[in-house]
Every structure is written in structure tokens, then in C-alpha cells.
Design a protein around this nucleic acid. Structure first.
Lengths: 212, 212
DNA sequence: ACCTGAACACCGTTCAAGT
DNA sequence: ACCTGAACACCGTTCAAGT
């Protein structure tokens, strides 16, 4: 099954493998085929080394996953706010972070599972705190606002990830058949729906935050 | 390691096992020790039968998980709204649903992964739609409101699940050490924090929904 | 109709060796 | 310092039998 994926990068010189190589290959597998597709043996085959060689470089699978999360966090560029009002600038930061995270959905889920969600939020946290302060929001109010924004952004990414592979249930309805308004469906079904829901919630949150 | 967990229920009579027994035992494992702890072999041992017997009753592991989700959905009682204004009644429904789902966090995560989140929301969806209509919200606006409420309730449960086992990272900071305001932490750390964030977001959402 | 043991192809991980 | 093969204890799943 091994396709021609050997020329992964302009490899330096020898046939040896570095920890960076392992992380890169593992990250590629996780992003494209999900975490379950990451097996030590498969990874070793991709790299053209014995399984046990991986253990020498990155420890065990758990440490490898930790390394992947660290790698994700290191690569998060610092985003810059856009807009005139504080609310608009916070919204722009939230949108940018969401976009960034959506491009790495599986890695984000992994980071979240490992309790590293706060670290993913950190690139915008300081900037948002500044905007909040300039809008007269500080202290516990600011802390609650930041927490809420963090949960909103990250959870929106997590929700969309699982939603993307929801094959609609087949079979007849098990519920009572006397439903007159079956057409009203409350589930976002495509990326655009998720974007709309995200914007709606963001707008609601910001209005609430900026109010007395 | 097998503790005295044989008297699972007042078993009917024989030594045989039903599909219901399998689901019940599996559900117990998932709720108490997480999905990863559910192995076909361990489950068989708990039930006192051979592994292969389970396959006869519930098919394979995937079908077993589907069965667990169905079981969760079947057991969701229909909640009843409390309060005078439509907003208050919707809020009460959202809170009740959140409470119900929090008691089955692992199962909820499983249902979400399998694209069954909308089904979990269904018990309150109709009631909420009624309240929205009585508040003059219908059509696309109502659909967006319902979607947003669904995402808010379910994602709050998913976020709290992973947050509950976030062992704070040890080791020194890898980031730049010149941070003056390290004390401002944007992460909910305990259940009370999550509840506050949930209430704040719910309030924001409802205000936004009820406005013109 | 229901349960069983044997067997298969996969896992993650360890360890004693090799160079 | 780095890589290897062999081996271990686990998985999910299938299948030919048993009763």
C-alpha cells in the first residue's frame, strides 16, 4: 500500500532519522488521516526505519503525542487585531484564531484532550485583554469574558470537526411519527452553517461583554 | 484484578447473557473508566462469558458503541420548562439538558463523535421552538437560534469533560519570560468556573435572540 | 439458538544485541 | 550514539465446532 511518499523533504544526507523527522511524519499522518491512523509500526514504515528506532528518538507513543501538541503550539503565529472598535478587534482575533485552528482540527482535538486548550488560546489572550481594558472591562469581568471567548472559539472548532463526518442516520424514525414540523432541523450540517453559528454566538458574547 | 462485581443485577435465572446485559455492562465501563477501557475481552470477563459470545449478541465493537449511543438516547427523559418569560423557560431547558448530559459525559462524547449530537438535543428542541415562537421568533431566525443553543449546550459539556483531567503542565516556561501579567488566567479550572461560563454564554445568546 | 476455543492479523513496548 | 530483530502481552475479529 506504500505510495511514493519517500521524498518527504530535502533530507539532509544520510539514511538516518531525527526526532524532527518523526514529529513531522507523525503530524502529517494525524492531520490527514486522524489520530487512530497513527501507529508506531506504520509511522516507522513511512520513515523507512525499524519501529524500535522511533522509541529511541521520541520515547513512547504518549510522548510522541505530547511532542505533536508542543509542535502545534510552537507553530502558532501571533495574530494581529483588525478593526476600529475594541469589539471589532476582539472579533477579528477570534475569527483568525478559529481559522488557524480549523486548519489543524485533529491536532486541536488532540491538544484539547491533553488539557492544552489554554495554550492554544494564548496567542490572542493578551491582545484581547488589552482590547477589553481599553473598553473599560477589567478584573473578574475581563477574566470571565476571556474564558467565555476561549470556550466559544475552541468548542466551535471541536464541534465542527465531529460534525464533518456525521453520515445522516438511515432507517425509519424510532420516535413517534406524529411530528408536524419535521422540517425544522436544528443541526448545522455544512461549514457555512458552523460559520454562521460561530458568528452569531460571537456577536452575542461581545454585546454582552461590552454592556454594563 | 477482578473485584467482586459479579452480582451486577438481580439476574433472571440462568448463566446465559442477553444483549441488554452486554449493553448495560459496556455502558458501566464507559461511564466509569472511559471508552478506551472498553475492550471486548475485558467486557466478556466482566460478564463471565467467552469473548466470542459477545459478537453473537451485539455484532462487533462498532455496533456495540452504536448500541450504547442508542441506549443513551432512549433513556433521555423529556424535560419540562420552568419560568415565566420565554427566555427564562428556554434557559431552564438548556440548564436541565446540560445537567443531564454532564452526568453521562463519556457517553455524550461518544454520541458526538458518531454524529448523534442532534439526537441528544431533540428532547428540548421542540419545547424551545415553541417558546421561541411565542416570543415572536420563527423561520430562519428560530433555526439559527436553535442551532446556536444546541452548540452551546453540547460543546459546554464536551469542553468540561476534557478540562476535568487537565493536569497542569510542569516544567519551566518555554515562552519569553518577560510577562508582567502572568496572573490573568483565562482557563476555567473547576466545575464552578465552567458553570459560570455556561451561564454567561447562555445569557448572552438569549439576549441576542430576543432582540430585534 | 447460543456458546466455545483456536487461530489470525494487528497493536505498543522492552530488551539484548549489533555497528 | 544510533539502529535492529526477537519476543511479550495485549487487541478485534473470524470460523469451525460443540450443545
Amino acid at each position: 500500500m506504500a505510495t511514493a511518499t519517500r521524498a518527504v523533504a530535502g533530507a539532509s544526507r544520510s539514511s538516518s532519522v531525527t526526532a524532527e523527522d518523526v514529529l513531522r511524519a507523525a503530524g502529517h499522518i494525524v492531520e490527514t488521516r486522524g489520530i487512530d491512523a497513527l501507529t508506531m509500526r506504520g509511522l516507522a514504515e513511512d520513515l523507512g526505519v525499524a519501529v524500535t528506532s522511533i522509541y529511541w528518538h521520541v520515547g513512547n507513543r504518549d510522548a510522541l503525542l505530547d511532542g505533536l501538541v508542543d509542535r502545534l503550539l510552537d507553530r502558532m503565529e501571533t495574530l494581529v487585531a483588525d478593526g476600529v472598535t475594541p469589539a471589532a478587534r476582539i472579533a477579528s482575533l477570534a475569527r483568525q484564531l478559529r481559522r488557524t485552528l480549523l486548519d489543524r482540527q485533529h491536532l486541536v482535538a488532540l491538544a484539547h484532550e491533553r488539557g492544552r486548550a489554554p495554550a492554544m488560546f494564548l496567542p490572542v489572550q493578551r491582545a484581547m485583554a488589552t482590547e477589553l481594558a481599553s473598553a473599560g472591562v477589567d478584573g473578574p469581568d475581563a477574566a470571565l469574558a476571556l474564558r467565555s471567548l476561549q470556550v466559544h472559539v475552541i468548542s466551535s472548532v471541536l464541534m465542527e470537526r465531529a460534525g464533518s463526518r456525521s453520515s445522516v442516520r438511515s432507517g425509519p424514525d424510532t420516535a413517534s411519527p406524529d411530528h408536524p414540523d419535521r422540517d425544522l432541523i436544528a443541526t448545522p450540517s455544512n461549514p457555512a452553517d458552523y460559520a454562521t453559528v460561530f458568528e452569531f454566538g460571537l456577536d452575542a458574547l461581545l454585546r454582552r461583554i461590552m454592556e454594563p
